[in-house]
């Protein structure tokens, strides 16, 4: 079974691959470590690129289609890089009851973005979150990770407008 025990080289000499290697090493290059390795990749690179999938597949000896299947199964992993700024709306039930659905619809209309999309100039990504766990502050949005909550739908729209125009 000692076929191909040689480790393949990382896609580039970017030092961040060392962190990816460290994760794989910690799991003994087990084929079960696909998800943990993808977590590390996303954490250090921000997204999961095609070359990183090939690297995981080659390093852990997991078939390409399987790695790809795992990476696309889970919501948390994004293949495309996100825009400079990320606007995220919580669509958990508590937020929904307090009007987050209206905020989502408004963003779609106002900025022409569907959840998961990024503007062509790569400035803004629009995401929806399942539940950020700040239900006490519902409805909740996140502007570049900063939680904004306890606002009415109209106040929320105003806040988003301000935040977006501030950048431009």
């Amino acid at each position: 079974m000692a076929l191909n025990q040689k480790r393949i080289a990382p896609p580039s000499d970017d030092r961040r691959w060392k962190l990816v290697d460290a994760t794989m090493r910690r799991y003994g290059y087990s084929s079960q470590a696909v998800i943990e390795t993808l977590h590390t990749i996303q954490e250090v690179f921000g997204n999961i690129s095609a070359e990183s999938l090939a690297y995981v597949s080659g390093s852990l000896n997991v078939p390409p289609s399987k790695v790809y299947g795992v990476a696309t199964f889970y919501n948390h992993f994004n293949m495309a890089p996100l825009g400079e700024h990320v606007l995220s709306v919580c669509t958990g039930t508590a937020c929904y009851v307090k009007g987050s659905g209206q905020v989502v619809d408004w963003i779609k209309e106002e900025y022409g973005l569907e959840p998961g999309q990024t503007t062509p100039d790569n400035k803004l990504s629009f995401m929806v979150a399942r539940c950020v766990g700040a239900c006490g502050l519902a409805p909740v949005i996140m502007l570049d990770g900063e939680v904004v909550g306890r606002l009415s739908v109209d106040e929320m729209k105003k806040r988003i407008k301000e935040w977006i125009s501030y950048d431009k």
Partner: peptide, 26 residues
Amino acid sequence: LRLGAGAFVCGEETALMSSVSGNRGT
């Protein structure tokens, strides 16, 4: 620790185990 990656179905026992083993959480 094993980190879930955003799949509600992984709350189901057999899907959770698939995921813990590094597979699609089916």
